[in-house]
């Protein structure tokens, strides 16, 4: 039990630290693309601490304040189901992959609650866009997962990781067990959806500074904003970890962390050079090529299994 509590306490901290680090390094990389030096990689820590240390000036009511907390709580709970590479998660059971799909939604919903009370149209539009976007990428994503479930015959993330396990050593590369190679089409679809989940361009309609002035965050300041930044960091970790767990075989720490980071960087590479879709275009996009690919993926999986 003690170990469990320790896990429950440590996991978010590690995840947050990793998430913030990724953002920090990401900022540096994007800066290089833009021919700048960029802030130091630890800048994100400083910013977060600063925000948390600030007084919150205004609140628009209970739900407004609860929003970010709910979002953060949702993310933390999700975290408990995500394996840290080959290390088993705290909670794991059959069907947890479906649960995670639901849990991931809690954070945005919580946010929506708070933002709605803020009654700033920028925030509301942002949330509306967020939910629309979710609707857009979730369909192909779920279909991609479906082919995974079909292939591995399990609905537990931990077991999906297990199924790809090989003998991990620094010298020997056992990547051939990865589902990426088994199910390349679904992996591609999942990665495209990951771009939307992470809210990286061309899918950053939610915050779109030039359109809706950072959207949901617009009314928040101080500690709340700090919590939202932390939430964002957690999200980055959860989503990249989920992808690595499912498609890149999890793996030991020395592989898992660089792998999640690489997935994040991959999305940054696209993020750095693209403008954003209009929200309608994003919806059309996801329900176009990725959806078709996802269906093809399922068909492919069924063919492979036979």
């Amino acid at each position: 039990m003690n170990i469990n509590i320790l896990y429950a306490a440590l996991a978010p901290i590690v995840a947050i630290l990793l998430g913030l680090l990724y953002i920090g390094i990401g900022r540096k990389i994007i800066a290089r693309l833009q021919r700048r030096y960029g802030p130091p990689f630890y800048q994100q820590y400083i910013d977060t601490i600063k925000l948390l240390a600030k007084k919150t000036v205004s609140s628009h009511g209970v739900f407004f304040s609860l929003g970010p907390i709910m979002g953060l709580a949702g993310s933390m709970v999700t975290l408990l189901f995500i394996p840290f590479g080959s290390a088993a998660p705290l909670l794991s059971f059959h069907g947890d992959i479906i649960l995670v799909m639901y849990l991931v939604v809690i954070a945005p919903l919580g946010m929506a609650l708070g933002v709605g009370e803020g009654s700033n149209p920028n925030g509301s539009i942002g949330m509306a866009r967020g939910l629309t976007l979710m609707l857009a990428y979730e369909v192909p994503f779920v279909l991609a997962l479906f082919s995974v479930v079909l292939y591995t015959h399990t609905t537990s993330i931990a077991q999906i990781v297990q199924s790809q396990a090989g003998e991990w050593s620094l010298l020997k590369f056992h990547g051939f067990n990865w589902l990426t190679f088994a199910l390349p089409i679904s992996a591609i679809v999942a990665d495209i959806c990951l771009q939307g989940m992470l809210g990286e361009k061309p899918f950053d309609q939610v915050i779109a500074p030039h359109e809706i002035a950072s959207g949901p965050m617009v009314e928040y300041g101080g500690k709340y904003l700090g919590m939202m930044v932390i939430n964002h960091a957690l999200h980055i970790y959860i989503e990249t970890a989920l992808f690595v767990d499912i498609f890149l075989g999890g793996g030991p720490v020395w592989f898992f962390i660089p792998a999640t980071f690489s997935v994040f960087i991959l999305s940054l590479i696209i993020n750095g050079v693209l403008p954003r879709f209009r929200i309608g275009q994003a919806l059309k996009f996801y329900w176009g090529v990725p959806l078709i690919l996802a269906v093809i993926g399922i068909i492919y999986t069924m063919v492979v299994i036979k």
């Binding site: 990389i29 800066a31 290089r32 693309l33 021919r35 700048r36 030096y37 590479i269 750095g272 050079v273």
Partner: peptide, 18 residues
């Protein structure tokens, strides 16, 4: 084509670090 922008990744930035 937009990915061509990444060629600046390893080039020296041209800003000044005051």
């Amino acid at each position: 084509k937009p990915l061509s922008g990444w060629k600046f990744l390893f080039k020296k930035p041209h800003t000044i670090r005051y």
